[in-house]
């Protein structure tokens, strides 16, 4: 299985959770420990080792927050 690396431009995340909903591995959550400048808990990956680099999260992100790389 391909390994993925997902990076978030956290400052512009609106916490809408579309990425959370479409992740097949269920490894994305809103980071309750952070609040960004827009006042949202930004999304982050809790277990990057599980990422398969499918790109679903990035495709669904309306705000182009997410970059996905295949390692």
């Amino acid at each position: 299985m391909a390994k993925g690396l997902v990076t978030f431009n956290e400052d512009i995340c609106k916490g809408c959770e579309l990425c959370v909903a479409v992740c097949p591995k269920k490894i994305i959550e809103l980071d309750q420990s952070k609040i960004n400048a827009k006042g949202f808990h930004p999304a982050h990956v809790v277990n990057m080792d599980e990422c398969i680099a499918c790109g679903n999260c990035a495709i669904m992100c309306p705000d182009s927050v997410i970059t996905v790389e295949k390692l």
Partner: peptide, 17 residues
């Protein structure tokens, strides 16, 4: 060596929606 699966298109600027 990593390959980009998805990144923001250059057709959009950095202004936030």
């Amino acid at each position: 060596m990593s390959t980009i699966v998805y990144k923001k298109t250059k057709a959009l600027n950095d202004t936030q929606f």
